[in-house]
């Protein structure tokens, strides 16, 4: 009896979580122009999507920003995590605490404050401002992921490397980096999906000249949800899912 309550409760939770997504995915294969009635299977919305140059441009822009931002954030974040765990300096703990506060702060606050900063600096909103904003909000996630990994291994390993004749540079590239690589990749994938999905911050910091996919979709659905958008969202969802799953397995992986 107890078991059945458990199972049905779990089913209800998962149904609540996944039915909307499944609906969207199913309707992306629907023949009907209007999304509420099932009129048979088709791939035409995916074909139509491929022909929509504006959407493809936005998609390409999004990919570019996500790729560049995640790579930059991963580079800086990894070095930051290394510094915080490896060196003793004044304000080390405060420094790391501040990273968390960036992670926690609401997107709307981040978006407005970044916009104010760019306006103040006289920067025109566009690719560069968008990129900087995305690097900013991705960075803490990389740092926290990598830091957890560094904390997880015996710090004596670094002493051992130094004892055997390794300089700082060799310690980082031959010992630390290979050991934290799974976490670095996970942080990178996480950044990539965060950047790809972001709407709120991007809304404030990008300009009309540089359109990205989430914002494009947002503007499209204001005029009603088209089946192409369903198809697009399905693709986007699957990409994110793949990246998050990969990140999960990379952080879970133990050295075996």
């Amino acid at each position: 009896m107890k078991r059945w309550i458990g199972i049905s409760w779990l089913t209800a939770v998962y149904a609540f979580l996944y039915i909307p997504l499944l609906t969207l995915m199913v309707y992306s294969f629907n023949q009907a122009r209007f999304t509420t009635v099932w009129k048979g299977f088709t791939l035409k919305w995916y074909v139509k999507l491929m022909a929509n140059q504006q959407l493809l441009d936005a998609f390409f822009n999004s990919l570019t920003v996500a790729l560049v931002a995640s790579v930059i954030a991963t580079g800086i974040g990894t070095l930051g995590a290394f510094a915080v765990s490896h060196y003793r300096f004044a304000g080390r703990k405060i420094f790391f605490g501040l990273i968390y506060s960036v992670m926690m702060s609401p997107d709307i606050v981040m978006g407005i404050s970044l916009l104010m900063l760019f306006v103040l600096l006289g920067m025109e909103t566009g690719f560069l401002t968008l990129l900087l904003a995305h690097v900013t909000f991705c960075l803490p996630f990389v740092m926290v992921t990598v830091h957890a990994r560094i904390r997880g291994f015996d710090s004596m390993v670094v002493d051992a490397a130094r004892d055997l004749g390794a300089g700082e540079f060799q310690i980082f590239f031959r010992i630390i980096l290979p050991m934290i690589l799974p976490a670095v990749l996970a942080g990178w994938l996480l950044s990539f999906t965060l950047s790809l999905d972001d709407v709120i911050i991007s809304f404030f910091v990008t300009g009309p000249a540089f359109e990205i996919l989430p914002l494009k979709i947002y503007s499209m659905v204001r005029l009603g949800v088209k089946p192409e958008v369903n198809a697009l969202c399905t693709i986007l969802f699957l990409m994110t899912l793949a990246a998050v799953t990969a990140a999960h397995f990379l952080t879970k992986e133990r050295e075996q």
Partner: peptide, 20 residues
């Protein structure tokens, strides 16, 4: 003289082997 330039080697208590 830093550790890396000393003609001295250590066996650590936790062994500190490189797991990778």
């Amino acid at each position: 003289v830093p550790a890396c330039d000393r003609d001295v080697n250590t066996v650590f208590q936790s062994y500190a082997l490189f797991p990778h």
